[in-house]
Design a protein around this nucleic acid. Structure first.
Ligand SMILES: [Mn+2]
Ligand SMILES: [Mn+2]
Ligand SMILES: [Zn+2]
Ligand SMILES: [Zn+2]
Lengths: 145, 145
DNA sequence: TAAAAATTTGATAATAATTATTATTTAATA
DNA sequence: TATTAAATAATAATTATTATCAAATTTTTA
């Protein structure tokens, strides 16, 4: 659970960065960002939409799609698609890894300092330039056990 | 590049396992398996279909979909869905990780003994039961540089 | 080997997720 | 507040994937 003040700071930074990048700070964008920054659940587009609609009945699903696309392009959120169907989003940009449930598809964040110290594999022969890496730990969440 | 004899052995084993599991060994299934086992490119369903059609003009795209679904269910292939659009398939079931190109979406296999020895993160508090893990090294392939 | 039973295929329809279109509305700026 | 560029909402279109089902093929049984 993020503290309320921390969340407000995050939203504040988001608004400033939008202006810096020439993006209008609209009610819709604020609503999407706030809901996403307030949860750890890596919601799908539709889940986010359902979270927002009660507070914001005129919100359109297509706007949530486009907003998240914009956010991803500008580096406000990350998008992931583990084995399940739908894309999932995360406003947590600190480098971290994921626990992915094979049963229900839910995602939990996992931080592990040791992982940041692994040696990158040798890619001299294929000449692939590695920029970063993410680990998906796959298994069964507590709910599904 | 797989050697031809190694590939033949793999197809041989595949046929035997199909029979053991009560799956008919059809021309279509052999064609899909052979093409997939012969490439390292992690093709999409449509790419596989296009590879197969010249040799096998009556092949249906729906059959490729269904065949791959069957193969995955029976553990003959693995399916992966990077951030891009389409699912990609791999007949290489040795535990390995992936180099994923951020530009074109291509996937290369990467083996790294050191990775198999990492300590799993502590999940006592969330009670998530980790079964395995996969690392996506993200960056830019040689083609796209 | 031939007939019967079971499975698979191919053609196509249906569905689900996502993206494109466009008239209207809103936000930023002067 | 008026101007202008950008964003939204409603909805159509597209794309990837799955479902349906009669016909064909494969496997089993006699
Ligand atoms: Mn996360
Ligand atoms: Mn692979
Ligand atoms: Zn679960
Ligand atoms: Zn590339």
């Amino acid at each position: 659970m993020e503290s309320q003040t921390h969340l407000n700071q995050k939203v504040q930074r988001f608004s400033e960065e939008c202006r810096q990048k020439g993006l209008s700070v609209t009610h819709q964008r604020l609503a999407v960002y706030k809901k996403l920054a307030a949860t750890k659940s890596h919601p799908t587009v539709e889940e986010l939409y359902d979270l927002i609609v009660p507070d914001f009945p005129m919100m359109s699903l297509a706007t949530v799609y486009k907003t998240l696309e914009t956010f991803e392009k500008h580096g406000f959120v990350s998008k992931t698609r583990p084995t399940g169907e739908k894309a999932r989003f995360d406003a947590n940009l600190n480098p971290h890894h994921h626990l992915v449930c094979k049963v229900c598809g839910c995602i939990e964040d996992v931080y592990d300092e040791a992982l940041s110290r692994i040696n990158l594999p040798d890619t001299k022969t294929s000449n692939f330039r590695i920029e970063d890496f993410r680990v998906d730990f796959r298994g069964v969440c507590s709910e599904c056990q």
